[in-house]
Design a protein around this nucleic acid. Structure first.
Length: 906
RNA sequence: GCCUUGGUGGUGAAAUGGUAGACACGAGGGACUUAAAAUCCCUUGGACCGAAAGGUCCGUGCGGGUUCGAUUCCCGCCCGAGGCACCA
């Protein structure tokens, strides 16, 4: 009987759906296991073959854990708010909700065909008001909380107000608080709220008409759309992520993520321990201190000038009247530049002298204060001390403007370039002379603190997340403005539903699209017109999956106590500094307030690699309609043309199909190699324009879902990026057919030890490999086992039955069918993982303890046929071995049948 | 520039410091077949010796080191991928 995957897959997918085979129920009697995929944004293009890679891996693991007796939560949903749907709406007038729903339906169809074991009853959609009610709820909780540095956690803002009223706090005395107006009180509290409104330099994208977060901008261009982004000061909602910088950093040590990903987050958080130091200044006849931040307090004797960021508040105060014209000119020049230009011109040095001087607090020396764009306003204090001898940026600046360069580490030649020394001996440095750099840093810090010149200070690069977007298709803020004071709407009135509008552009006045909504007010007061960014909805979705239908809480206490955190999270590395930081922050916040019971949301995280496209080319001879096979193309002058990969199989072109592809190729002629047209190829991004998109539906049509699943895993290690290449797909398909055929002559005979060994070797290997996420080698092991069984002509139930269970995580459809054929009712998902008997799996060797010299004891592994005497003889025969015998503890002799090949010493 | 990765046949790739290249693709040869498809069997890192059985040498980016033994560990280079980048 043939392996008819089409009817098999249809049958079992319908069965799983109707029986709710993969339903996850909170059940304290069983151990839990939570497997999560990063939910997709449902784009109009549908799924390509790269998307399911991670889903297949997580599905295998889920099914495996289920067989191991775990209660598995494996949900799926959609990150459905977002820019593409809105942009499409602006162009076509089609409401984003309609396109989003259509796209979701298409995604669902495609996902279903692959045979995932998702519990669809747990589905969430971020654009569903029942879902975003809880996004808004979390926002209000953040609005209603402050970060208490003494407790190092978030607390209700009411506690802070109480402090203001009674004891006073942070410079706000009870008197001051009592006399403040409502507006002033609101302004004071904004400085403490976790979700707050504040003016800040933002990434403004004029083309998109919205602000963007730092992780949504790359090289001065928006990640979505690639439009230029400029810096602009605006009042925006923000999340005080920076308050959590240290905990976000420390938490990394407690979770099982890849080193590279942790490193990315560490860099993004950017902790740097240094010193804040005060320099006095002389500006005309006024004096004013400026504070700088440095990690190299030891280099203070090498300071020859100071630099301010152009945006620094100190600039106007320190500019002397004589320099004012020049400084203003420079500020204008800097302001005009876009972020992109600033980045592109990284190596051109610009700046202007302020006219003022600073006094080096250690030497009393007078050094000029300059203004330059190479100093950033947003980091440290926006002012630096420049040590040109030992910092390449300061060096370039000093060279350009002819400022002195004083080396303070012995033996540096600074005539050509700076010497960014991290070690060496100090010189020209007063009391630091003779010290090593590392000692000097500490000594300088101590000195500065002891003499009241500054203090130790830790800076983080991580900035607060800008949380408003001037867009329509997102969560509305549950905030209205009562007499200009931002006021939350009552919790029990959530959700605040996104209003209907018909045009999705910003208004002519430049207001966000929500300004077009009719009656966008609350109690007669205007509601906030911005919406929340994409990461709002994705920051707590893993919690909602635990209890998605609860309308009393984001997640019920019982459900949260049971499911706790995500045991395995699989997704792309592109979210390293976005979603994965925000989620951790969001979760820590909820943890502080006691709403969730784990501080870190994702225990283990695996980054699946990307699947790139493999494009094919044909070569047209210039000025003809003749195409030459790749091996012969160098004999002609040719143009390379992308050809639709659906017309190519194993790099051989389907000539008739090609002629029919496009009218201009109708009368194409070909120069063949060995009777075939061989195409060239290249690895490129999978995209429509390169005709290299592979739709999983097509693979399911030709080979079946199980082949697709096996093949994507067989392609190579999960974490690695790799091109999609259908070349090898026949191999796994053949394997499934072979496995199927073993059942043709199913026998009830008792299995031989040899046959049992094949099985148990496989069980051992499967277990080990799946736990290590090495799915490609698992499949290899399966192929070997099946080949072995074929060689043994074994079709015994005793062997095949457990093998069906073993295969079921990888190829669930065929497994279910065979399970059924073996006479079982129900689903193989209810079976349990076969028990492993190590004795049966062991290699065909015996271990002999061998006495040697009457003292030492060696373990020797040999085939049953090899006598121990042979080993002893070997050891005596080889002096190099004998020589080491004296200090060895164990010797392991590895033996190939009949022949000793190596001696292992430990 | 900094950080993180990776570099093994024609291709995708395997190898707790212990027979490098498992498994699969492709290629070549063969069986079955009127033929094709499907299926099955053999060969397949390179160079050499041998009529054959079989054997020898070289081989995991390059150069060193540790080790009885290195794809694996250490040091220094080269190349690729990803991230960060005037962060003081």
């Amino acid at each position: 009987m043939d392996y008819d995957f089409k009817s098999i897959e249809k049958k079992w997918q319908a069965y799983w759906a109707s029986e709710k085979t993969f339903k996850a129920v909170t059940d304290e009697s069983k151990p839990k296991f939570y497997v999560l995929d990063m939910f997709p944004y449902p784009s109009g293009a549908g799924l390509h073959v790269g998307h399911p890679l991670g889903y297949i891996a997580s599905d295998i693991f889920s099914r495996y854990k289920r067989l191991k007796g775990f209660n598995v939560l494996h949900p799926m949903g959609y990150d459905a708010f977002g820019l593409p749907a809105e942009q499409y709406a602006i162009q076509t007038g089609q409401h984003p909700e309609i396109t989003t729903t259509n796209n979701i339906n298409r995604y669902r169809q495609q996902l279903d065909r692959i045979g995932f074991s998702f519990d669809w009853d747990m589905e969430v959609r971020t654009c569903d008001s029942k879902y975003y009610k809880w996004t808004q709820w979390a926002f209000l909780k953040m609005f209603d909380s402050w970060y208490d540095p003494s407790a190092d956690k978030a607390r209700p803002i009411s506690e802070l107000i109480e402090k203001f009223k009674t004891t006073g706090y942070d410079g706000i005395t009870p008197e001051k608080w009592a006399s403040a107006t409502d507006k002033e009180k609101s302004d004071i509290l904004m400085n403490y709220r976790i979700a707050y409104q504040g003016e800040t330099a933002v990434n403004w994208c004029p083309q998109l008409g919205t602000v963007l977060a730092n992780d949504e901008v790359k090289e001065g261009l928006s990640v979505r759309g690639g439009y230029p982004v400029e810096q602009k000061k605006m009042t925006q909602w923000q999340l005080r992520v920076s308050a959590y910088a240290e905990r976000l950093l420390k938490g990394l040590d407690t979770i099982d993520w890849t080193d590279s990903l942790k490193e990315m987050q560490r860099n993004w958080i950017g902790k740097s321990e240094g010193t804040e130091m005060v320099f006095n200044t002389i500006c005309g006849d006024r004096q004013m201190p400026i504070t700088i931040f440095t990690t190299r307090a030891d280099t203070v004797f090498g300071v020859t000038f100071m630099v301010l960021a152009p945006e620094s508040d100190l600039v106007p105060q320190l500019t002397t009247p004589e320099q004012k014209v020049k400084v203003d000119e420079y500020l204008q020049y800097v302001k005009k530049k876009t972020e992109r230009e600033r980045i592109a011109e990284t190596h051109t040095v610009t700046g202007v002298f302020s006219g003022s001087y600073a006094i080096n607090p250690l030497t009393g020396e007078k050094v000029p204060i300059w203004i330059s764009e190479y100093v950033l306003a947003g980091y440290g204090t926006g002012a630096i001390m420049a040590v040109p001898a030992h910092d390449s940026r300061d060096y370039a600046f000093a060279k350009t403007f002819n400022l002195p360069i004083v080396p303070i580490i012995e033996g540096c030649d600074v005539s050509q370039e700076s010497f960014d020394a991290k070690e060496g001996r100090m010189c020209n440095s007063g009391f630091l002379n003779g010290l090593d750099v590392k000692e000097a840093i500490e000594a300088a810090k101590d000195y500065v603190e002891a003499h009241g010149l500054g203090r130790r200070k830790t800076n983080y690069r991580l900035r607060d997340a800008i949380f408003s977007r001037q867009r329509y298709w997102g969560e509305p803020f549950p905030i209205y403005y009562k007499d200009g004071i931002p006021t939350p709407i009552p919790m029990d009135k959530l959700p605040l539903v996104l209003p209907e509008i018909t045009e999705f552009k910003p208004t002519e006045a430049g207001e966000p699209p929500l300004a077009r909504a009719k009656d966008w007010t609350w109690d007669g007061y205007p509601l906030e017109k911005s919406t929340m960014p994409g990461f709002a909805g994705s920051s707590a979705y893993y919690l909602r999956y635990m209890d998605p239908h609860d309308d009393k809480a984001l997640v019920g206490e019982r459900e949260n106590k049971y499911w706790r955190d995500v045991d395995l999270y699989i997704g792309g590395t592109e979210h390293a500094t976005g979603h994965l930081i925000y989620s951790r922050f969001w979760n820590k916040f909820l943890y502080d307030l006691g709403y969730v019971c784990e501080e870190e949301p994702f225990k283990k995280l695996i980054n699946q690699g990307m699947i790139q496209g493999r494009s094919n080319f044909v070569y047209r001879i210039v000025n003809t309609n003749k195409f030459v096979s790749v091996g012969l193309k160098d004999q002609y002058q040719t143009t390379e043309i992308h050809v639709d990969i659906n017309l190519v199989r194993n790099d051989k072109l389907d000539l008739e199909g090609f002629k029919a592809w496009r009218p201009e190729f109708n009368d194409a002629e070909f120069i063949l190699e060995n009777g075939e047209y061989v195409c060239g190829w290249a690895v490129e991004k999978m995209s429509k324009s390169m005709f290299n998109v592979v739709n999983p539906d097509d693979i399911c049509d030709t080979y079946g879902a199980d082949t697709l699943r096996l093949y994507e895993m067989f392609l190579g290690p999960l974490e690695q990026s790799k091109p999609w290449d259908t070349k090898g797909i026949d191999g796994v398909n053949r394997f499934l057919k072979r496995f199927w055929r073993l059942f043709d002559n199913l026998s009830e005979e008792k299995a031989s030890p040899e046959e049992l060994k094949v099985l148990h070797k496989l069980i051992g290997k499967e277990q080990e490999d799946i736990e290590a996420f090495s799915f490609n080698t698992t499949i290899s092991a399966f192929m070997i086992a099946v080949n072995d069984l074929m060689a043994l002509k074994c079709s015994k139930r005793e062997i095949l039955e457990p093998m069906v269970v073993l295969l079921s995580p990888f190829a669930p459809h065929i497994s279910e069918e065979l399970w059924h054929m073996l006479g079982h009712g129900g689903s193989v998902a209810d079976a349990s993982f076969p028990e492993f008997i190590p004795a049966l799996a062991a290699e065909d060797v015996v271990t002999y303890p061998v006495q040697f010299n009457g003292k030492m004891r060696f373990t020797v592994e040999l085939p049953k046929s090899a006598p121990a005497a042979e080993v002893e003889a070997y050891i005596r025969e080889y002096p190099q071995t004998a020589k080491y015998v004296g200090d060895m503890k164990i010797i392991k002799v590895i033996v190939v049948p009949g022949k000793i090949v190596n001696v292992v010493i430990k």
